[in-house]
Amino acid sequence: MDFFDEFPSLGRGPLRDIKKAIDASFKGFSREYGEALEAFFYPLLKFMVWFEKLLIATPWPIILLIIGALAWVGSRNIKLVVGSVLAFGVIGFFGMWEDTMATMAIISVATIVCIGVGIPFGILMARSDRIQSIITPVLDVMQTIPSFVYLIPVVMLLGIGKVPGLLAVCIYAIPPIVRLTNLGIRLVDADVMEAATAFGANYKQRLWGVQVPLALPNIFAGVNQTIMMALAMVVIASMIGVKGLGVPVLRAISNQYLALGLMNGLAIVALAIIFDRVSQQYGKRLQKHREGGHGV
């Protein structure tokens, strides 16, 4: 009856051997290719350092001006502009300016990387059901696997610093833009696509002339989600050496500093709300052609 009482599991010995083998082979891999990978990411690192320094070195009134201008370009809404500038002013006033700039730097770079990598993958996914069925489970894993789990190999490979932090953020933040690009393209009206085909449009002409423009609202929702998720990773990224608002939050957790944690946490929330509202308004403006009494 032993069989029913205890689950027939692998003995401790073989299990340990398996784990050891995996660890050893990965260590071997990281010893072999770690430096090459670091060299590969070096330009990215330089860019991130430069961008962060630029944001911190730029006089704060200019940054406020730029933020106001970006909010205006994105939303054409004076309330949002005033709100954004005010929020940044308060953040600065409470002594979180530098951390906020560092966070902005990594969020911006992460978003650019996610867009640059995610949209092509989304387009690829929309092209065939087969590719979709391969990529979808990968995205599921990226979104659901606890971030700490993939921090281990990332840190083993690249150590602690900005690049592994960026990778961790991107792994978590890229799925929505891939998914929504794919979805947006697949939702393009079949009648419109057929018309384009009937007039002799080739794949490229259909993609850039019809599919991508009509999928833009969805793609934009993906960008918005990607930014939000990147912000959610700020604290975890700070565990592996990314500067920014996450660092004081982490310090607050270990020392039970309620006020410090709250202030920096709220600063992250403020950033999230500003990014979200501005990009949503921009996404809405992209759909202007849908206005009018008659359905498309």
């Binding site: 009206d189 009648d191 419109v192 057929e194 018309a195 384009a196 085909t197 009937a198 007039f199 002799g200 080739n202 002339g209 019809v210 423009p213 009509l214 052609h289 849908r290 498309v296």
Partner: peptide, 22 residues
């Protein structure tokens, strides 16, 4: 076939098939 569709036969659709963003 592409050239045939581009130059020789054009089509009008029941549901119009217009590009809504143009």
């Amino acid at each position: 076939l592409l050239n045939f569709r581009r130059f020789k036969a054009s089509m009008v659709f029941q549901k119009f098939g217009l590009l809504p963003h143009r």
